[in-house]
């Protein structure tokens, strides 16, 4: 009886490896339905974006973006400027009006592309997926100050994202926010 365990274990692993992409996609879809849509993450954004996906990038006070240094500039998906919110906590830009994205990385690239180069993204691809080091010309690795190191921190609907942008599952009306975090 127990002698059968060896072939069974090998077959189980092979089947799992073959089915892994299918299982992963199915689980992602299932998990996406549980991601709660936080209303408050849309606070301060144009009301017309309430049902759309938004990407915001906030720059630190010491290293503001040359084009977005007063308030937060609201940019539509087609690249046109909606307006500037000076009441926002911080300076930077939000790009909104997107729908239908389910994965973080394509959304990051498309949303930042809409700003005609102002928010260009630089990232490395490592064992754990893409690692974003630069947004809008600001490389977090080059920042110095009263901290050991800095990185682009990812927030998903106002919460720290548990996964990197490469593994992020999105649902409609999600707000992705990048800001500099330090350790």
């Amino acid at each position: 009886m127990s002698n059968e365990l060896k072939p069974i274990s090998v077959i189980a692993v092979i089947v799992l490896i073959l089915l892994a992409p299918t299982i992963r996609d199915a689980l992602r879809e299932e998990a996406a339905t549980y991601v709660s849509d936080s209303e408050s993450s849309h606070d301060g954004l144009p009301e017309s974006w309430n049902n759309s996906q938004v990407m915001c990038v906030l720059f630190p006070t010491d290293s503001p973006h040359s084009n977005f240094n007063s308030g937060v500039t609201m940019i539509e998906a087609d690249g046109s400027t909606y307006g500037v919110n000076t009441e926002f906590n911080g300076t930077g830009a939000c790009v909104g009006g997107f729908t239908g994205y389910t994965e973080g990385m394509p959304f990051l690239l498309d949303a930042t592309n809409a700003t005609s180069g102002d928010l260009d993204v630089g990232y490395d691809v490592g064992d754990w997926g893409p690692y974003v080091h630069t947004i809008g010309g600001l490389n977090a690795n080059n920042l110095t100050g009263n901290f050991s190191g800095a990185y682009w921190e990812l927030l998903h609907n106002g919460e720290y994202s548990m996964v990197g942008i490469g593994d992020l599952i999105m649902s409609e009306a999600d707000v992705i926010l990048w800001r500099i975090g330090t350790w």
Partner: peptide, 25 residues
């Protein structure tokens, strides 16, 4: 966040279970 996190992790749970089966066998 727990439910989507656990569902997303099910594939890794399966990896762990299959690995354990290999080591037992």
């Amino acid at each position: 966040m727990l439910a989507p996190y656990l569902i997303n992790g099910l594939l890794f749970d399966l990896y762990h279970a299959a690995g354990n089966l290999i080591f037992v066998a």
